[in-house]
């Protein structure tokens, strides 16, 4: 028995390179959309399994480099060391929405207020026109693409306060905001649903129009990263399909914006 398992180990180890199918890994913000793309693409190409793993942007980049995945998914820009070895292909654009509980009377904040809240300088909703309740600040974990995009666009040069609650996925942040009347969080615009309320920033609502027009301030690219050597065959075709007309249509339907043509 043990020998059989050991043999199988070897066999699988060798057979891995020849495995059919496509593995994507990376940003959990991108994961649900990639699953949708994969579903639709697979409907067209039956028999071609596509695996969509989470793990986060950085893990996605690393997976693409190491070959653990053909395509890495990143929801942040690449740092120079990474972009030297990988091609980054924008597959969508995403707004980051600042969300609160639907029962929260606050509808609009300025960017500097959001920054002060996240830095721990404003600790009560009444200072920004809300109820007298201390703010439960919710953030993503260190290393998340959404967090680093949020930090770059909102909190820099300040640091997110240590007292902020940390959740490790967009869905978990949304869930927490939906259940806590005093919470504030930030999530991918495409994943905002009725359980939370997206704030407008200085009167600009996070909607497709404003994101497209560039008036909404928090927009980031969603990237697929691939080593140049692997950008052919199935991965190439999959990416071309996503940025092609069918893919763009689906992207819009799911609440993201397609990349600029």
């Amino acid at each position: 028995m043990a020998v059989a398992v050991a043999l199988q180990l070897v066999a699988v180890g060798c057979g891995r390179a020849a495995r059919r199918g496509l593995t994507l890994a990376g940003s959990t913000s991108l994961q649900p959309f990639a699953e949708k793309w994969a579903d639709a693409y697979q409907a067209r190409h039956p028999g071609l399994p596509i695996y969509v793993q989470g793990g986060g942007s950085t893990a996605g980049v690393e997976a693409a480099l190491s070959g653990a995945a053909e395509i890495g998914m990143a929801s942040r820009l690449l740092v120079p060391v990474e972009s030297a070895r990988l091609m980054a292909i924008p597959v969508a654009r995403d707004g980051i929405a600042v969300v609160v509980n639907p029962t929260n009377p606050v509808r609009d904040l300025r960017l500097d207020q959001v920054r002060a809240i996240y830095a721990g300088q404003i600790r009560n909703w009444r200072f920004v026109g809300g109820r007298n309740a201390s703010i439960a600040v919710i953030t993503r974990e260190e290393g998340s693409g959404t967090r680093s995009a949020f930090e770059a666009m909102v909190t820099d040069p300040l640091r997110i306060a240590a007292s902020a609650l940390v959740q490790d996925s967009t869905g978990a942040v949304r869930q927490m905001v939906a259940s806590d009347p005093a919470a504030i969080g930030y999530v991918s615009f495409g994943l905002v649903d009725a359980s939370v309320k997206a704030l407008s920033l200085r009167g600009v609502e996070p909607n497709e129009l404003n994101i497209d027009a560039g008036t909404y301030p928090l927009v980031r690219p969603f990237l697929f990263v691939v080593t140049p050597a692997r950008l052919k065959g199935v991965p190439r075709d999959f990416i071309d399909w996503i940025v092609g007309p069918e893919g763009r249509e689906l992207t819009r339907r799911e609440g993201l914006l397609p990349p600029r043509a």
Partner: peptide, 12 residues
């Protein structure tokens, strides 16, 4: 298993 032996994320 996943990295060193190259099994990837797998049932094995």
């Amino acid at each position: 298993f996943v990295l060193t032996l190259g099994l990837g994320w797998s049932i094995l």
